[in-house]
Every structure is written in C-alpha cells, then in structure tokens.
Amino acid sequence: MQPAIYILASQRHGTLYVGVTSSLVQRVWQHRNNVVEGFTQQYGVHMLVYFELHASMLDAISREKQLKSGSRARKVALIEALNPAWDDLYPGLL
C-alpha cells in the first residue's frame, strides 16, 4: 500500500477530479471501469494525468485538501508541468 493523490481528466483540458487512495492502480482501475457510481462515472473522467506518492495517508489527505481548495488553473499548471501532453499515465503503472 502506497498512499497517493491523483488527478483524473475526461480529456485534455476537460473535467478534472482529484482523489486520494492507498492503492493507486486499484483505484484508477475502479474509476476506469465505472465500478462505483459517482462523479467520475457521470462525467467520463477516466484518464490518469497526474499523481503524487506520499509517505503516509495523513500526508496524502492533506495534499488532496490543498489541491481541492486550489483553483482549476493551478491544477492545470501542475498537470502541464509534469505531463504537458496530458498523456494517460495509467498504462505506465501496470
């Protein structure tokens, strides 16, 4: 188990979703396969465009809250700094 925060997108510059998990691969798989009803299923937010690994779940939750309280422009800048093409990073995790 590795705590992580992640950002999913519906497409380049599309709808964004910020989440936290203790198992990034499993959680993104759940989003991509619409296992749980909710925001990501409703808006087709399935591309993993950004993630950060954290030492503890408390650190990850704190970072998630920081990202969620920030502006969309700040989230986009974060994504584009490390993933300018908005590539789907999920296949690289497998």
Rank of each mutant, 00 (worst) to 15 (best):
A4K: 06
V18C: 04
I61M: 15
N33E: 13
H46P: 03
L16R: 07
A85W: 00
G70D: 06
A9D: 02
L16V: 11
T21Q: 07
A9H: 03
E64D: 08
P91R: 06
L78Q: 03
K75C: 14
G70S: 15
L89P: 06
G19L: 04
Y43K: 09
L24C: 10
E80S: 05
H13G: 04
T21D: 02
V45W: 00
D88I: 10
S69P: 03
R72D: 06
V25N: 05
W86P: 02
L58I: 11
G14M: 09
A81N: 07
A85R: 12
A60N: 02
K65M: 11
E52V: 11
A81R: 09
T40P: 05
D59T: 11
V20R: 05
T15R: 09
I79N: 06
L53R: 14
G19H: 03
P84S: 12
L94S: 12
M47K: 13
V28A: 08
I5R: 05
K75R: 15
N33I: 06
A60F: 04
D88Y: 06
L58S: 14
R72M: 04
Q11H: 14
V20S: 01
P91N: 11
L82D: 07
R74I: 01
H31P: 05
Q30L: 09
L78F: 09
A85D: 15
A85T: 14
P84F: 08
A81V: 02
R32W: 07
H46E: 08
G19D: 05
L78V: 09
R32G: 06
R72G: 08
E37N: 12
S23I: 05
A4S: 15
A77Y: 08
A4Y: 05
I5Y: 03
G70Y: 05
V35S: 04
L89E: 10
G38I: 07
G44M: 01
R27H: 11
L16A: 09
G19V: 04
D88F: 08
N33P: 09
P3Q: 13
M57N: 12
T21H: 00
Q2T: 14
A9V: 07
I79E: 03
V36C: 00
A4V: 10
P3L: 11
Q26P: 01
Q2S: 14
L94Q: 15
G38N: 00
Y6L: 08
V28S: 04
